[in-house]
Amino acid sequence: MSKPVTAPVTADIPRQPVDWLPVALPLIVAVAAFPLVGNPWTWLTLTIAGLAMGMIIFTVSSGLMLVFGLMDVLNFGHGAFIALGAYVGLAVLIPLTPWVEATSVLLNSAVFALALCAGVIVAGVVGFVFDRLLIQPVYGNHLKQILMTTGGLIIVEQLIRAIWGAETVSFNLPASLRGSWLLGEAAVERYRIVALGIGSAVFLGLLLVLTRTRIGLMIRAGVENREMLEAMGYRTRHLFVGVFVVGAMLAGLGGVMWGLYLQNFTASIGAQINVLIFIVIIIGGLGSTTGCLIGALLVGLTSNYVGFAAPKIALFSNILLMLLILLWRPQGLYRVVDR
């Protein structure tokens, strides 16, 4: 990190026209859903659940968004890292059941942290291999990329079935993360607050790295114009591998969280959430972290409100949301990449 040169900042810096409307969207959706839900306490429960789900979806989507923005690589296998995260988390929690069931907050937290770390590490390693075997060989060819990574997703999913079985697995949250707090008449599950916290930390962390570090500068610059970054002397290949692996790790982290959120799932957990991630990426706009966050929150909120009011069309509501946003802004909420 270089120390910013103290250039005298005069008064007339052009005020950046901040585009607030997308930021207000989740709020608008929340308000609009109020009459749909009716009961204010139910609404509060749903809103918190939606935000928590949104933060988890953001955690798993952010890596894909960066990879897509930075290298124009569309990884249809991203869901594989999420599924891996969920199963690795399971593999840590099940043998350590005594810690999970212990009444000690410390042991509970320790086992939770351990599961998260394991998910992150395994997803990172697999991500590195995935990139080498499936993405680098077809770099620059969208069609083959989509096909190769789809193949990768299927392979990983089948390997998970071979290792952990094809049946639905279910497991318990660590004891102190179970249950809910009562907020008035609204029951707020503890784990959702935890998920909100972790997701927010990921967002802030990403934002800090992207705006305050030199690597972050390179990533943001590369997302917008990779060629110019190369012509300025930076080798983007390593940067890409790094971002890809970190993206996979974030997907692994989010995978553990998503698995615990669902509490029972099958190996298709990754392929299922892939759909939501794509919707988020399209809504958010290419290469924008904030857009990705807003997209994820919108998807989380919509899923919960509609899931409550009309469960059968929950997935359609997200597609409808995406279509509406594309009608409004064909390039997504915010767009950094100009391709």
Binding site: H142, Q272, I281, I282, F316, M322, L323
Partner: peptide
């Protein structure tokens, strides 16, 4: 019309989303 207007890769993503929703329905 919705997806190809933006980018051809969006087509793959949107068809996946719509197809998943359809089979759930």
């Amino acid at each position: 019309l919705f997806s190809l207007r933006v980018r051809a890769v969006f087509f793959a993503m949107i068809t996946l989303a719509v197809a998943t929703a359809f089979s759930t329905l």
